[in-house]
Each structure stands twice: as structure tokens, then as C-alpha cells.
Design a protein around this nucleic acid. Sequence first.
DNA 1: CTATCCCCGGATTGAGCCAA
DNA 2: TTGGCTCAATCCGGGGATAG
Length: 292
Amino acid sequence: MNQKKENEFLTNYHLENYDRPSVAADIVAFTIKNKETDDYRKLSKKELSVLMIKRNEYPFKDYWALPGGFARKDETLEDTAIRELNEEAGVSDIALMQLQTFSDIRRDPRGWIISCAYLALAEEEQFHITAGSDAAAAEWFQIKYDLIQEKSEEIMQGKCKVKRFELQLMHSDIKLEANIDIKTYFTAKKQRTEYEITNIQGIAFDHAKIIGFAMEYLRENLNGSKLAFELLPKYFTLTDLQQVYEAILDEELLPANFRRKISDFVIETDEITKGAGHRPSKLFKRNIEQFN
DNA sequence: CTATCCCCGGATTGAGCCAA
DNA sequence: TTGGCTCAATCCGGGGATAG
């Protein structure tokens, strides 16, 4: 390499001569909320919930959005995500993993803004939600994500499958909604998937799409991964684990099958639950070596 | 008041059927 | 053969009811 020419090139290179996007990080934080029942003998119900913040500035003032914000010059996007989670929801010390980049042309009305979405999974207590300084409120919304329509149509060189999902986010009286069409185009050589929001109420930006993507990711990668375990304490019962699966998949599973299927991923301990109004259950821990 | 029994709601497991 | 499922049996802790 010719160092002199390299330096000369860099001196004359002006980044500002080119169009550049702003870059942001958004966080999809999920947890399992336990809803107690009035009968002490019954188990609490588990609900999958997503963290939303109420915006206190324009655009989308008073709408609900995922926590997130712009990257600063001196930080990585992961740093941005961690900082925004803290500034907007008072959350710290949570593990994040990168989910996907969202770069639709008009995803943000302010202009060319690319967002990198991060996924955070943890027990509710680990989050310590408080409305941070940069948001009017931070709340857990119970999430429902149901397939409501499925069709397949012929296109020029193949076919297109469209799945319409209804996303509902609920927190006390507040209900946010969106329909998300997931279109998968199958042509001879490749397959391509697009997400499209067809109907939206109360959710800022393209965040309904990001939540939909995160739900798809969770459901597709649940089996054989540690995802479900991140939402549980170190020691848990198999029923707890099954209920987490059911909350994510929105589907009832059969205990006998479930136990057989996940048996390699858990290790039995000598501990049992106490104080429940029924037979005590064994506690298990995750078998880390088995995960992909 | 105390010892028991029974029921509720669950946990766990084995046998066996069926379809791919 | 494998996985998905159903069914039935058995085990258990806690509360209410009951007999002593």
C-alpha cells in the first residue's frame, strides 16, 4: 500500500459531499407478566408484554412508540440502544441482541432515517420500568398477534403468499392496533418477504412493523433456542416454561408432548415449589450446552 | 380443638392410536 | 420409525367438612 497516496486521498475526501442518513436504534423489550387469579389454587396466567413509551415531542407527540433514538457521534448502536432504554424507561443492565435493520424510505416523516432494532428479553423485575426523562410514560403492553387471513395469489413468475396479522397492544384502557401483511414472493430462484402495515392506530413510525418482525422472530426461533429461558428465572417449573411457550405462540400445547420435546434442554434439580395449593412441582434449570 | 377424609387443581408418566 | 396426540392412572398439598 502506498501510504502517501492513501493519506492524500483521505485528505481530499469529503464525506459531507454525500447524502447520509441519520441512524437510530429502537428496542423491542419483551417480558412475561404474571396475572394472578382470585383462586389461590390456580396458577397465575402468563401474558407476553412489550415495553412502549409515550412520546412527549413531535413527530407523533402523544403516540406510543418503542424506546429508541438517534445514535450519537461517539457511540456504537448498541450503546445507543442501552442509553435510550435508560433515558426513556429507566432501564439498565439488560442484555440486547440485534434483530434487524429497518430502512423503508418513508419510515420516519423527518427524513432519511435508518433504524437498527434490538431485542431485549428478561423477567419483569429485571427491567425496573420508570418513566424516564425523555418520555411521558413507559408501560408494559400486553401483546396479541393473531393470524386473521391467509391467501395465495399468482404473480408474473411465481406466486405470492400473504398473511395478515392483527397486532393488538393493551394497557389498562389503552388499546393500540395495527394490521400487518407479511407478503412472501416465491419465484423460480428466490424468495423475498415484505412487511406492510395496512391499518394502524396509536403506534408511532413503523414500530408496528418492528414489533411484528420481532414476534415472527420469537415464534420461529423459539424451539431449540434459549429465548424462552431468558424470560424465566434461573429455576422454573416445566409448567412455567410451557406457559411461556404458549404465551409466545398463542397456542395451547400438550403437557406430555411438551415435556418430551424440551427434556434435553432442561436439567432437573432437587428443589421443589412450596406453598402452592396443589402438588408441588419440581424445579428445573436450563441445560446451556444444548442450545444452538 | 384435633385428626381425617374428600375434593380441587395440578404434576407426571405410561400405554397406545394414527398419520406421514 | 417418528412425532403428534389422547386417555387414564397416580401422585400431591391445602382447604373445608366432619367425626370424635
